[in-house]
Design a protein around this nucleic acid. Sequence first.
DNA 1: TCATAATATTATAAAAATGTAATATTGTAA
DNA 2: TTACAATATTACATTTTTATAATATTATGA
Lengths: 97, 97
Amino acid sequence: MDMKQMQDKCEEVSSLLKHFSHPQRLLILCYLSDGEKQVTDIHEAVGLSQSQTSQFLKRMQSEGLLGLRREKNFSFYYIINPAVLKLLKSMQKIFCQ
Amino acid sequence: MDMKQMQDKCEEVSSLLKHFSHPQRLLILCYLSDGEKQVTDIHEAVGLSQSQTSQFLKRMQSEGLLGLRREKNFSFYYIINPAVLKLLKSMQKIFCQ
DNA sequence: TCATAATATTATAAAAATGTAATATTGTAA
DNA sequence: TTACAATATTACATTTTTATAATATTATGA
């Protein structure tokens, strides 16, 4: 892999990792790593305001990390990007044992 | 692992991952993943200004990701945090094959 | 249909990160 | 001892993130 390819990869990967570099945002991802959750549960679990939680979720969805399923008047968010899931798992191995 | 522990972990890990969430900063880490390098080599390899490269390196050193060895009038930086190295390797598996 | 719960949006303030230019420091070789 | 190369520092402008408050939307059950 040459420098140019590495540059491109780093561009791509770093923009994904932005979402991992904020404590509650990372916590949201960890919280979602065992399945979909609705917004109120998420914001209560991680201790962010409803507004900010909704903003973060929307951004992570629009950038391809999360998927959204609506049911009744609930929004269920879930991790849709398999690389995110893999990364969370390997981070758990590295940092949580 | 309960929510409080996860919160603390996420605090810790996210502050480390901040350095991964900027394209050239991640590239620096990748570049260093095969051994120590001197500042000029780094800034030429990643295409950052000398000043910014030096600033980033210093910050990553002060936050425990990098080590520094001086020889003659060169500064050699290297990855000193084993978790960073592990993470880079697993990221390479996930994103680069 | 009305009130409410759940979520989203908007605007904006505050804080942090990034980029840049100019200058300083320091060791080395001539 | 001087000039230069290598690195570091400083100050500051710009951009991006984060936080907060207020309001809007929308579906649902009473």
